[in-house]
Amino acid sequence: MDIFLQQIINGLVQGSIYALVALGYTMVYGIMGLINFAHGEVVMIGTLVTISVVGLLVKLGVPLALAGVAGLLAAVAVCMALGWSLERIAYRPLRNAPRLTPLITAIGMSIILQNLAMMIWGRNYLTFPKLLPQVDFEFAGANFTAVQVIIVLVSALTMGGLLLLVYRTKLGMAMRATSQNLQVASLMGVNINRVIAAAFVIGSALGALAGVMVGTYYEIAHYQMGFMLGLKAFTAAVLGGIGNLAGAMLGGILLGLIEALGAGYIGDLTGGFLGSHYQDIFAFVVLIVVLMFKPSGLFGEKTGDRA
């Protein structure tokens, strides 16, 4: 029982992070049908910027808590700028290009960002500063930390805020209209460029937040960390039904839970044949199985053949 609960907690934490990153993928995809492969790198840059800013401020004698907040804000600002520039420079000129063209551009941008990060921050693993005090809780035999609680809470609040933004503001309405039909929305006077830019900027801000969370949680960062994280988050977005905000959130949480439980139990389930190093397989196996039965993801709209 305690292992079960422990893994649920771990899964929730990991899942919240996936969900935040998945939102960045799903927003962009929902509006312009593009898999923004470079989104994982945006998250990575968020983490690394925080490390640099916090390190610098602490060296200057700023208290850690204040430096942490500044680091987070800096990461969000840098990532928003990065997301905006990505769209403006790389993707906007390709709006009318064949379908795979922006995908290759996204891959190219991902390679560029990764290697720029390597030039700036080096090849080595970096230690993420301890922004939060180590506080442990115990509940029904399972241990968890303040960091975990805060990650889950902040994610939940942020996602709530995003839903409010999308369903209660004019910008949100424009975004929803655009994701229904770009041409029509544009005819109705929606400023498409602004909406798409907003999707990138908001997605990147969420990514930066997720990046800081990953750093705080694992206390380590690396220029290649964005790749697997992005891949998993994208998987989560597809699992939930890509283009669907609630789907991305639930898909992320679900993926986190599945991975954690899978890693905890796979040895027992297969009689020791498969060990926990198969953890990364779960994401994909679950994805394939779900899509076999629900071809548009768990919460995606059914897009049938229209004649």
């Binding site: 190219g108 941008m109 991902s110 390679i111 560029i112 720029l116 030039m119």
Partner: peptide, 8 residues
């Protein structure tokens, strides 16, 4: 980096 740039 050059390779990525070439793709883009």
């Amino acid at each position: 980096l050059v390779f990525g740039l070439a793709l883009v």
